[in-house]
Simulated scan of single mutants.
Amino acid sequence: MDFDKEELTREVLEALDVIRPYLQSDGGDITFVELTDDLRLKVKLTGACDGCPMSIQTLKGGVEMVVKQRVPRISEIVPV
């Protein structure tokens, strides 16, 4: 590993905190699950976001965009 996983995790959590109020305003939320060694971020959408037909668009078009802007090393965001 040529990165500090703890530092990247902190940066990811900060990025999720940026997007969280938007999800919460629609009755949803997001939970950090894991940052893998190949820099995939696993998250769980909760509340109204869990099972919502728009959740993949929210994840890819909103959450992934914000996280990758703030933490460019993240390769992708994967829902679990």
Rank of each mutant, 00 (worst) to 15 (best):
L16W: 03
P72A: 09
D4Y: 06
P79Q: 13
C52S: 13
M54D: 14
P53H: 10
P21V: 05
I56H: 12
L45Y: 04
F32K: 02
D38C: 06
L13Q: 15
P53N: 09
K5G: 05
K68N: 07
T36L: 04
E7K: 12
D38I: 07
L13W: 06
V63W: 00
Q24S: 14
D2N: 14
F3E: 02
G27L: 00
E34S: 10
E6H: 06
D4W: 05
Y22V: 14
Q57H: 10
L35D: 02
T46I: 09
V43H: 02
R70Y: 07
V12A: 12
L8T: 11
V80W: 00
D26A: 05
E64A: 15
L45C: 12
T58E: 01
T58S: 12
T46V: 12
G51W: 03
E14I: 07
G51K: 07
M54G: 15
G61Q: 04
R40D: 04
C52A: 15
I77W: 02
E64C: 06
C49L: 05
L35P: 04
V80Q: 02
E14P: 01
Q69I: 07
V78D: 05
D50V: 00
V67P: 05
K44H: 13
G47S: 04
L16N: 05
S25M: 08
I74P: 04
S25H: 06
Q69R: 15
M1E: 01
T9F: 08
V43P: 06
Q69S: 15
V80S: 09
P53Y: 09
G47E: 00
K5Q: 12
C52R: 03
E11M: 15
P72Q: 08
V78I: 15
Q69C: 11
E14V: 07
V33S: 01
